[in-house]
Design a protein around this nucleic acid. Structure first.
Lengths: 169, 169
DNA sequence: CTTGGAAAGTCAACAAGGCTGACATAAAAT
DNA sequence: ATTTTATGTCAGCCTTGTTGACTTTCCAAG
């Protein structure tokens, strides 16, 4: 292994932070994300839906009764963009949009049975790959994986992430 | 920590593979990827370039003299899509496209000084976040992070990834 | 030397999924 | 009564992906 020529890290215990190591991390994220989305994408192609629909369905399933505004924050898109997706999902009977009780301006979103079916199909494919990767890498690696990803998030999104059920992990 | 109610994993040492854990992993990928691309995206907005240009510039910098075909495989897009990006980069003098010596059909791609400048700007931003995440999580976590990501890749891309310099890591 | 096929480039057309801006409505808050 | 908030919608634009058809260049096999 070459001794990272010309890299001013000082030579303490932080040797793993060479530019080379960081670049490999960046590339790992890029290639892994491709694998991460590959299976759902394959399933969705041919249907009239895409990755954006998958994301909406995922988070509605995750937080049933969530409001549109809430979903907007989590997904980080404009309401026009989200609305286009939600409209088709509601029209096709995968998502139900109920007027709020306390605040009648709000719409609360729920998956219908049909919506749950699609979510399960997509989720099972994605979880299958995740499970295989977890198995191959082992429990200690999984813990590290989660730690690094969490540290990589924007602080506001990290909070959203941690509030998504089982936050104690 | 709750004992994963109603989850039929059998109770061996693979408890960490509950659906809940897998879903959290999926969400971690989603949110972390947003953070991962946030800084370069911010820099690129306002310029006439986008994420596709960033990717091209990154991998040309990484493998100077790479051919178009090679880049196509790594990026996983069609040649028409890549060509649109490369054309603007060549026109703007960030990338040089040299006809091959051995095989004159091939074009070998190199960053110009200007291209190197852009790559460095984007890369420094992205590495900054990666470095902070690595520091926060620690060396053991980083190793696990890389292991899981690697296991998540499509086999063919994993090979591409491992061949990108310092493959012994 | 001719020809088949690979590598690359180009043109046209289209789709998904982002974006902005403008505007409408209903309901809550002040 | 007025303002603010939550949502929906229309129109139009951009980036980045796609397919299909076609051309040019040029290596290599017959």
């Amino acid at each position: 292994m070459p001794d990272s020529p010309g890299n001013p890290t000082g030579g303490e215990s932080l040797l793993f932070l060479t530019d080379e190591q960081l670049r490999k991390g960046i590339e790992a994220m890029f290639f892994a994300y491709r694998g991460f989305t590959a299976d759902p994408d394959r399933i969705l192609e041919g249907m009239e839906y895409g990755r954006a629909h998958h994301r909406a369905v995922h988070f509605i399933n995750r937080s049933p009764g969530t409001t549109v505004n809430n979903l907007l924050e989590i997904l980080g898109v404009t309401k026009q963009s989200l609305n286009r997706v939600l409209r088709t999902l509601v029209e096709d009977g995968l998502v139900e949009s109920r007027v709020g009780n306390r605040d009648k301006r709000e719409r609360h979103l729920y998956l219908t049975e049909k919506g749950v079916d699609l979510e399960r199909t997509l989720s099972e494919a994605q979880r299958g790959r995740m499970r295989a990767a977890y198995r191959a890498a082992g429990p200690a690696a999984v813990a590290g994986f989660r730690q690094v990803l969490e540290a990589m998030m924007e602080p506001e999104l990290r909070r959203q992430y941690q509030n998504l059920k089982e936050g104690s992990t």
